[in-house]
């Protein structure tokens, strides 16, 4: 090092500069390498393979493919059944996301009040569904929804809402209720996560704002409307983005509760991909095309979220 300074100060300075520039980048990538390689193998390479697959019809036993160009996409976009899954997916997202976030914020505000020694208990109570796997949630709700021996209808009858089990809604068997039933189960499991995030946001708000508002004579609803919600907006925005993506990808509950039925009433885009690729007679090319359409849709939804909702976010 010392010698090189003697040889030519200007040249040396530039190499050192260059090395200073290259090495940190290289070093950073070295640290990142384990993750990047994992991502490469499990995410990036499959993204390309799956695009290639989407241009082919593939025999169920895999060893025979026919190149069909964009035919899979054409088939999907001209199929009434496929547009129906798109419609159902949007209904599902609309059903889970706003209700989920609204409930979470309400619970978070309630939980942020000092509830004494039992605070940890209530928080745990609400968080428990998150750590339960979606399969278990599915089985649990299946028992609640059972049309003949289900608890939900049973209690509705006991409470006098319906005369007998036959008159209570057939949660999973009727087209009108099946989507609602699946939305309830999914929102229930996601609720705990949303509450924890919202609670952190609520607790982050400086007490002095409330004190000032109280001095000005603001009531509790006014305080929530003018202080809590605006200051919570970064958290709400985060929840919105995460929940939209999560709902687009919901699978476990649907698979256990309805398997996309009755008919196709709960076949969302993700479930349709699974069904096409892995159930019955698999058509992996068609499924890959569906995956691409879904990806484009989720990405554009996220862009729309950022473009519209983020303007309303108020950072402290």
């Amino acid at each position: 090092m010392a010698q090189s300074t003697l040889d030519g100060p200007t040249a040396a300075r530039s190499t050192v500069k260059a090395r200073k520039r290259v090495w940190p980048t290289l070093e950073a990538y070295l640290y990142l390498a384990p993750t990047l390689i994992g991502l490469l193998i499990f995410v990036f390479i499959p993204i390309f393979t799956s695009f290639q697959l989407s241009l082919n019809r593939i025999a169920p036993f895999g060893n025979q493919t026919r190149f069909v160009g964009l035919d899979n996409y054409v088939t999907l976009l001209t199929s009434a059944d496929y547009w129906d899954t798109v419609r159902i997916t949007f209904l599902f997202v609309l059903g889970t996301v706003p209700t989920g976030i609204a409930l979470a914020v309400a619970l978070a505000i309630l939980l942020s009040y000092p509830v004494g020694r039992m605070a940890w208990f209530y928080r745990a109570l609400i968080f428990v569904p998150v750590i339960i796997s979606s399969a278990v949630t599915g089985v649990l709700f299946r028992w609640l929804y059972h049309p003949v021996v289900g608890y939900l209808s049973y209690w509705m009858v006991q409470l006098g809402i319906f005369e007998n089990m036959q008159q209570a809604p057939n949660w999973l068997g009727s087209k009108e209720w099946a989507l609602v039933a699946v939305i309830i189960a999914t929102a229930w499991r996601q609720l705990g996560f949303n509450v924890i995030i919202a609670l952190a946001g609520v607790q982050n708000i400086d007490e002095s704002f409330y004190d000032a508002a109280k001095v000005d004579g603001a009531g509790i609803l006014q305080r929530i409307r003018h202080i809590t919600l605006p200051l919570l907006s970064p958290t709400l925005f985060f929840l919105l983005v995460i929940n939209v993506i999560y709902s687009f990808q919901a699978f476990g509950e649907i698979n256990i509760l309805t398997q996309g039925g009755p008919g196709r009433a709960t076949t969302t885009m993700v479930y349709s991909i699974f069904e096409t690729a892995f159930v019955g007679t698999p058509q992996r090319g068609l499924a890959s095309a569906q995956a691409y359409i879904l990806a484009v849709m989720v990405i554009s939804m996220s862009f729309i979220n950022f473009a519209t909702a983020s303007r309303r976010v108020h950072y402290q």
Binding site: R142, P147, V148, V149, N170, L172, G173, Q259, G261, P262
Partner: peptide, 12 residues
């Protein structure tokens, strides 16, 4: 009953 597409609910 309308049991949708299941085997298990039939048994129960």
């Amino acid at each position: 009953p309308n049991l949708n597409n299941t085997w298990t609910d039939t048994d129960s």
